[in-house]
């Protein structure tokens, strides 16, 4: 029979024993977490895209694939250009052949599976190009789902992938509402745009920003009120993609249309 005395003794021992592994695992207290989350000084990269200026030449996609060693002929890319064509009869077509890598050198819309839609110039209500890339969300869902801590957000807001730690499970690819993540066909790990992290840390601009002849792409530090990009975002009418997801994307668009998702 277990006595009250021995039960209480063992209970105290048990609780004391359980508290030891907790301190070894080292879960940070809420106060420490709060302090970590409230870093106000420094850099927070944000992107600004002017869809009026984009002509769909695709030089950004070409430069990105070369700069970031993405296999050139594989049908994956860190950034891509979408074409939207609204017709007078209400139909809307959108395509992105090879991610816009070779530009848009035909007026035909690529419907996939080798089918093309002829478009008569006179039927067009409005048509435009939209460059897409990683939004470097303030609340990145791709980071939350990673089971091994292989993707994370750096202090400057850029979401990075730890290539040697990624197990290639693909949860993050599923979790991204914008579809910017893909499998690197050679390295077999998750891959995504990181605003050319190696370039922005050397004072250069991302390859796509520099490659664009028309200034449709801009990058800036949103914590610096004097930054030209910050000034536009604060003072002009800009929009973000899928704000309803609560991801707080940091790629801002000028001239966004309802159909663009």
């Amino acid at each position: 029979m277990i006595s009250r005395r021995s039960f209480l003794k063992n209970a105290i021992k048990g609780v004391a024993g359980l508290s030891i592994p907790l301190s070894i695992i080292g879960i940070a207290g809420p106060r420490k977490l709060f302090a970590l989350n409230n870093v106000t000084a420094g850099v927070r990269w944000a992107f600004l895209i002017n869809t009026y200026k984009c002509v769909g030449c695709g030089l950004c996609v070409k430069a990105c694939k070369t700069e970031n060693e993405i296999p050139y002929d594989a049908n994956v890319t860190r950034t891509w250009i979408e074409r939207y064509v609204h017709l007078k009869d209400g139909r809307v077509f959108a395509d992105t052949p090879k991610g816009g890598r070779d530009g848009f050198t035909t007026s035909k819309i690529d419907l996939g599976e080798g089918r093309y839609q002829d478009i008569d110039e006179k039927d067009i209500d409005k048509a435009f190009f939209v460059p897409k890339l990683c939004n470097q969300c303030e609340n990145p869902p791709c980071v939350q789902v990673c089971p091994v801590g292989a993707t994370f957000q750096a202090s400057d807001g850029v979401v990075l992938i730890d290539r040697s730690w990624c197990i290639g499970c693909g949860y993050c690819i599923m979790a991204c509402p914008y579809g910017v993540r893909f499998f690197h066909p050679v390295l077999q790990v998750a891959e995504k745009c990181n605003f050319c992290y190696h370039r922005i840390n050397k004072g250069l601009k991302p390859a796509c920003v520099d490659a664009c002849p028309f200034g449709a792409r801009m990058i800036g530090n949103i914590k610096d009120p004097e930054d030209p990009v910050t000034k536009v975002i604060m003072a002009e009418r800009v929009n973000v993609l899928k704000s309803e997801y609560g991801t707080k994307p940091q790629a801002y668009y000028i001239g966004m249309d309802e159909e663009v998702r």
């Binding site: 695709g58 050198t105 002849p213």
Partner: peptide, 14 residues
């Protein structure tokens, strides 16, 4: 042709 294939898209620089 990336730029010089004419596409008369009214709201685009192209």
């Amino acid at each position: 042709l990336r730029c010089h294939l004419p596409l008369s898209y009214p709201t685009s620089g192209r």
